[in-house]
Write a protein that binds this DNA or RNA. Structure first.
Lengths: 264, 264
DNA sequence: ATCATATAAAGGTATTACCTTTTATTTGTA
DNA sequence: TACAAATAAAAGGTAATACCTTTATATGAT
């Protein structure tokens, strides 16, 4: 207790040690191990008791570290025999969650989201037209046609329609050959998916048909390697959601409801 | 607690409960409480022991829930008297973290990031020129001038320069009056901040001066309410980072992927 | 063969005790 | 009186241990 007196004299020599909690240290070490390539996606870590021995800490401490990694989407925990702690592939989902929380707090509106989306997707389509592989062009065409089919069937649930629509947009992002765009697109879709409930006209065949023909037009532009046209059409497509006043005045809702994970 | 031994006989009556772990349940409840407005930023939760009593679980379980929330950036934990668990303001930092992890694993390159940034920021500048408030225009001008000053002083640390640069770009996003853009900008800055270390020329006065005049030009375009010009200048500004080959060839440190361990 | 039961590995939770950090408050001395 | 040092108390951090629950596989009975 008294030795603190010479802290001043040593103050310049030693660097202040931040009080790192044990579980944090463990979490960091595991993260590093992943980034260094010592652990790769799908690998299973030793069980909690062994980890405790390895790091020389108690099991609760190990578990806290795991919880932390789990919340970040770095590992996944499965119970039962052949269960354990597995390294997971980071999902864009995580970005979406974080983004969503941020948006909520900052009071972003759907209007703002649509606005961003329109230019973002337009540019993405532009790049896709320039870089899409043959396979991607084909996939896009198929998806667009699938959307058209569903569109003409009023009895088809809107979920199916939305699902295909999302797939199409993500494929466009993929075709842009830019992983950042893919990530952001997925994140946005995550937020948007909730808001799809707000689309008033998703059940109207006329509206659906219009959307479908939009997608077909975009797919064609990409196929013809016409970037400018692809951009224009995509912009119009997304923009239509504003003009048509399809999106209700709406601030991001106060309920996430992502807990029901057993289903879907 | 629990221990209903007659569960077997009741098995057909009650609906299967999805195996929700206790700590998850708690985490969700706390999240909900926040979203419902029952808890707001800055509030302090009861201490761990009390929470245990409230939820009727043990302290370790409570702690796991807290770790989970902490990792998501929802709460913050402080030790000592007057310490405790506090609701935190969601930071864009979290989005950046998630984005960064995603980029790492998807093998995104800095080039891709710059590519996205160039169009994203250009459009943001376009909107800023249309919507910036008077105060924002003023702030932008001040920031640009500050950058110019620092630029001419070689002895100024590069951190200072970068810091001002970041502030400028975030102010532009802010002026676009779109919270989504602000969020994404902050996230990107987070990732970019790390990579700033890769800027080879940040110490060169010539390069710094060039950057500074770029910003001044952008600020002017916004002040003159010339969206097209603002977009053009911002695009050139960001693009310059590619052309000038300032960013070294650099793939986000991907795993070594030494596939020695074939299987087990 | 088919269905049911047992087994074992691994995570989930509960208890309890004690350590560490942190800051307000008290105490003591110049 | 004023400032510095010791103290106390609140709250999180860690340890140790026992037992419960989940679940894939194996085993056995019909």
């Amino acid at each position: 207790m008294k030795a603190d007196s010479n802290r001043d004299s040593l103050g310049k020599i030693f660097t202040e040690v931040s009080p790192v909690r044990g579980f944090e240290d463990i979490a960091v070490q595991i993260k590093e191990a992943i980034l260094q390539g010592h652990l790769k996606v799908g690998d299973r870590l030793p069980n909690e008791r062994e980890l405790g021995t390895l790091f020389n800490v108690s099991r609760p401490t190990v578990r806290e570290a795991i919880r932390s990694l789990e919340a970040t989407g770095i590992v996944e925990v499965r119970r039962g025999v052949y269960g354990g702690i597995f390294i997971t592939e980071p999902k864009a989902d995580q970005v979406g969650k974080a983004l969503e929380a941020l948006l909520r707090f900052r009071g972003a509106t759907v209007g703002e989201l649509v606005e961003f989306r329109s230019t973002f997707e337009a540019e993405t389509a532009y790049l896709a037209a320039k870089r899409a592989t043959f396979e991607q062009v084909e996939t896009l065409t198929k998806l667009a046609n699938a959307v058209k089919e569903v569109a003409s069937l009023p009895e088809e649930p809107w979920e199916k329609f939305i699902e295909l629509d999302i797939a199409f947009h993500e494929e466009v992002a993929s075709a842009s050959q830019n992983q950042i765009r893919v990530a952001i697109m997925m994140a946005i879709q995550g937020v948007f998916h909730e808001t799809s409930l707000l689309l008033e006209k998703v059940d109207e065949v006329a509206w659906r048909t219009r959307q479908a023909s939009d997608l077909i037009g975009i797919a064609k532009a990409i196929k013809e390697r016409n970037p400018e046209l692809a951009r224009k059409r995509m912009a119009e497509h997304v923009q239509r959601n504003i003009e048509a006043d399809v999106v209700k005045e709406w601030t991001i809702p106060d309920q996430v409801s992502d807990e029901v994970r057993d289903n879907e």
